[in-house]
Write a protein that binds this DNA or RNA. Structure first.
Length: 113
RNA sequence: CAAGUGAGCUAAACAGCCGCGGCGGCGCUGACGCGCCGGUGAGGAAAGUCCGAGCUUCGCAGGGCAGGGUGCCGGAGAAAUCCCGGUGGAGGCGACUCUAAGGAAAGUGCAACAGAAAUAAACCGCCGCGUUAUGCGGUAAGGAUGGAAAGGCGGGGCAAGAGCCCACCGGUCCCCGGGUAAUCGGGGACGCUAUGUAAACCCCACCCGAAGCAACACCGACAGGGGCAGCGAUUUGCCCGAUCCAUACCCCGAAGGGUGGCUUGAGCCGCGGGGAGACCCACGGCCUAGACAGAUGGCUGUUCAAGACAGAACUCGGCUUACCGGCUCAGUUGGGAA
RNA sequence: GCAUCCGUAGCUCAGCUGGAUAGAGCGUCAGACUCCGACUCUGAAGGCCGUGUGUUCGAAUCACAUCGGAUGCA
C-alpha cells in the first residue's frame, strides 16, 4: 500500500480554500480540488478553537484513521483538506468516520456503492 | 473511633488484528526509495514561562549616568528570588503553617473623616492671680476623637501637675556568658530625645553586556540594485572611550531546500555509607522519544477500584498552576475501652 | 522562544499614576406628556471593581501570585 501524501505548504491550503469546492457534513468540512499528480494529497486543519493540544491531537488521529480506511476507494489526483469544526472535540471514531464518508460521498470523491 | 497536620509513592492492566515516527539488520534498485524482520516510542506536571544555568552567536564586552534585581543568619548546590536548617515576628488548643525580615536622628512627601490639637498642642477640666463678669498665667493626671495623642503602671512630689524623682516593665548603649552567625540569657549605665508609612520618593550594601536552537554552523540554489567617512556600525536607553568600514556593513529584491545543532546528560536505577536536612561520596548496572505541518491511533475481547489533569520540540535545576482516585509513613487533638 | 497590554453596572468605557465619594453614555424599570405610541422630561434599580494573599489606619488603585482574554516580534 502507498503511504498517504500530505499537504504541507501554506499556499496549497490557501489555494484550496480560495479555488476549491467544499462540502460540510457533521463535525467536518472538506475542501477538494484536482491536482496534477497521479495520487491524492491530504491536509488536516484542526485549529485552536477545537480544544487544547490533547484534544486536537486526538481529532487529527481520528480523521487520519478514517481516511486511511477509505483511502483506496477515493478518486485519484485530488487535493483534499479536512477541517475540523469545534464540535469534533466531543466526537468519537464512529462519528468522525460517518462524517467523513458522508462528505466524500456528497463530493463525489468515492462511489456510493 | 472521629477530626485535623505534615511528608512521600502511583497515574489501569492484558491478549489478538490493522496502522504511524525514529533506530538497527537483511534483501531489491542506477538512484530517490520500497519490502521483510527485530527492537523502541510522551509527563508528573511534557503546561504556565515566574526565576536560575548550560550551550551558541554578536566589529570584544571599557567607564559613567539612567534602568532593573536582591535585602535576618548559616548551609547546600553549576547557579538562583529556589531548596535545607536556624533566629526574630504573626496565626493555631495542638501536630504545624506563614513571613519582600536593611535604614524613619540624610532629606522630601502623605496621613481623609473625627478631634481643641496629627508632629504640632490648652476645647472641657484642674490650679494660681484678678474680677460683678469677660480675663491672664501654669498644667498633659482626667474627659472626648482617632489607626496613632509625647513610653506603661504604681508610689513619691506639687498650688495643680509633669521622668520632676524612684521601683518594675519597655527602649538605646556597653560588658560578660552560650552560639560559626542572626540572636538569646544575665549584669550595668542612660530619664528617654525620635507617631506611622520606604510593596511612597529615597538612602545604604551587593549584583546585572545582549539576544535566544526560528540561536547558530556548513552545503546547495540564486540575479541583482541602491546607500556608505557619517545624523554610520559595534545587541534595551543616554554620554564618553575604544574598535571597524568597500571581497566589509546597511537597506530593497530573488531564493527560501538539505545536513548538523538533536540527545551520554550537573543522566537514570539499585545497594551501601556520611549528614539534622537540602545534599554529598563509593560500588554495580542501564542507554531510556528525537519529530520538522510535526509520530502512540482504530476495532474486538477479558479483569477491576471504571480510568483525572493532560501531549515532548535544544537540554537541565527550582517555583507555580491543573488533577479521578488509591496507597504508605510520622506527629496532634478529642472521645471510648483496658 | 521572547515581549507588551487589558479584565470595573446587561453593553461601551472613565476613575488607578497621586489611596478614603465607585461615575458617564446606551439599555432596563416606574412616573409625566399623548386618545395611543415614538421623541422628550423626571426619578429609581442595578457593582463582593477577574480570583487569592499581603503592605497600610484604610486597597478598584500599591506589591506578589494566579486565572482568563488580546496583541506584537523572530
Amino acid at each position: 500500500m502507498k503511504k498517504t501524501v500530505s499537504i504541507k505548504e501554506n499556499k496549497d491550503f490557501k489555494r484550496l480554500y480560495y479555488r476549491g469546492k467544499s462540502v460540510a457534513a457533521g463535525c467536518l468540512v472538506v475542501y477538494y480540488r484536482q491536482n496534477p499528480y497521479p495520487f491524492c494529497r491530504l491536509g488536516l486543519t484542526v485549529s485552536a478553537k477545537v480544544g487544547k493540544a490533547v484534544v486536537r491531537n486526538r481529532v487529527r488521529r481520528l480523521i487520519r484513521e478514517s481516511y486511511r480506511i477509505m483511502e483506496d476507494g477515493v478518486r485519484k489526483s485530488m487535493d483534499i483538506v479536512v477541517v475540523a469544526r469545534s464540535s469534533a472535540a466531543a466526537a468519537d471514531f464512529r462519528a468522525v468516520r460517518a462524517s467523513l464518508s458522508e462528505a466524500f460521498l456528497r463530493a463525489g470523491l468515492i462511489n456510493g456503492e
